[in-house]
Design a protein around this nucleic acid. Structure first.
Lengths: 137, 137
DNA sequence: ATGCTCCCTGAAGTCGCTACAGGGTCAAGG
DNA sequence: CCTTGACCCTGTAGCGACTTCAGGGAGCAT
């Protein structure tokens, strides 16, 4: 199949597929007449794996490693688990960070009473502690 | 004050300050002997505002707009509120996305029983529906 | 010949920095 | 006077994961 069909089947954009090839995640496919890329079922499986990994938030580097591990069928599952656990920890950290951010932001947003800029609590909260003149620094 | 002191006082790195200047968030400061940048209290306040906005996750573009609004003291608070609300909505969406991601990932991680790659449930979950050879696709 | 859809390459742009190369400036110390 | 060291300067390239753009070629239908 050509790149457009592969894109349609995987939900990955054509440009992105070419970019994966350039950065070494996908092998260079055969070419048919017209210099068009020609993909087979293995390429489809590989790209689906990448897509699934990306959807789960893994980096391309992690996905590269995971794909390498799949080819080494005798290797231990440990490394795969480590990558997944590390990613999970990162996701959990991000959730915590964003949650405290949300608390702060929703406090800000609810403080807005719709007046003029001078009274805007949002801008007040963003401004530094003191006014520009520093008599109490 | 010179750029190093400004950096220390705001917690923004020297290179980042120069980068803010280059991208138009900070005005070009006066120069003292030796071609060193010379910052005043207004620059300190401005950079503190930027820092606080960044800590709250606003984009530089949003911060630029917020700073422009502060200078227009008679303007309505509405636009400020809109920016903050939009950002809050984005943060909330990210939290939702990451939470479902966490569920999926922790399911994955817990499925790992420590065997060989061939049995690894994590890789199974990442792989596409069928194996590369497609007799049942 | 024209129009259309698909495909090609290579380069540049996005965001928000970070890092590096290769210097200049200035005060303190010997 | 010279060196050391902290600080500063400019300009460029790199990061991740793409997206967009410029400028074409391939192949089919009309």
């Amino acid at each position: 199949m050509r790149i457009g069909e592969l894109a349609r089947r995987t939900g990955v954009r054509v440009e992105t597929i070419r970019w994966y090839e350039k950065s070494g995640l996908l092998e260079k496919p055969a070419r048919i007449a017209g210099n068009y890329r020609d993909y087979d079922a293995a390429a489809l499986a590989r790209l689906s794996f990448i897509k699934r990994g990306r959807d789960l938030g893994f980096s391309l580097k992690q996905i590269t490693e995971l794909m390498a591990l799949t080819r080494n069928a005798r290797a231990d599952c440990e490394r795969v688990d480590a990558i997944a656990r590390q990613h999970l920890a990162e996701v959990e950290r991000k959730i915590v960070d964003l949650s405290s951010l949300r608390r702060e932001l929703s406090g800000l947003v609810n403080s807005c009473t719709g007046g003029a800029i001078g009274d805007c609590d949002i801008l007040q909260a963003l401004a530094p502690e003191g006014p520009p003149s520093r008599s109490e620094g």
